[in-house]
Amino acid sequence: MSIKRRTFLGLIGAAGVTVASTGARAAGNAHFDGYPGSKGVLFDATRCIGCRKCEAACNAVNELPAPAEKFDDLTVLDRSRRTDAKTFTVVNKYETPSGGPVYRKMQCNHCLEPACASACFVKAFAKTPEGAVSYDASVCVGCRYCMIACPFNIPTYEYDEPLSPRVRKCTMCRPRILEGRLPGCVEACPKEALTFGTRDELIKIARKRIEKYPDRYLDHIYGEREMGGTSWLYISGVPFSQIGLREDLGYASAPELTSGALAAVPVVAGLWPALLGGLWAINKRKEKIARQEKREAVENAVARASAEAESKLSAALSKAEVENRRRIEVEVKRALEEAGLNDTKEEG
């Protein structure tokens, strides 16, 4: 699937003109490598023990409301949970066929080309140079298109807030990073399942671990290329799809997915008026010609009719004349005859 989805066609319908466009095309032949030295976090699923310390730390540093179950209650791991408006991160337990449970922490992946940012129509999301994808509630309208767009189902919404609901998600602890401190969850992890550093470094670290323990890890860094790459990276000993990370997302980033359709917009705005105006003008002209033809036809018809009438009239006249003459002749004849008769009578 992923391969096919990369071929992206924006289509526009005038006479079947097709504007084919990939992300690369949308930006000429330029390509973008992201902010140099931007930070990220590497999660190692083989190290995570599901202690929920990161959840507790996240709750504390972000001053989120206390949850229903305490963070040391590990029974919650028995059901599958997701982030919500009061929880920026959760750890889920996955039973895998290869034996033993595997834990995975879930939070915003801070994509290199964030779908949420691409989707937001007020620019509430932005990829910051530090690597975090930030959210600005002061412009957010609450359309929740970001939630539709995020392939990892991360952004959540304060549905119970009547007047000022916000989108909520992990901030990568950007305020702390700017102060030079570690993200809360990373700091709290007792097993070093979370490593903070520049993304480039993290990829190197991950590679080294995979190389060093080839039996322990699968040879794949999740997030290196998925959806155009993410700042939060994962390595694991079991296939990622078994720990709730979808492997069918493809490598095309969100802006690439929509750039074709966006490129079609100016085509319509630019060409439609000319085409439609032309159409209108043609029809106007047709109408004009039709009207002219009609008028001419009427004129012709009138002319023809009057000519006909005239000829009919003259024919009738001449016929009448002939008849008249004949009648006169007959009359005269008769008169003469009568006169003759009288004459003979008188004579006789």
Partner: peptide, 10 residues
């Protein structure tokens, strides 16, 4: 300088 495609497209 644009570091991301998203910024560039924006």
């Amino acid at each position: 300088v644009f570091y991301t495609l998203q910024d560039f497209l924006l």
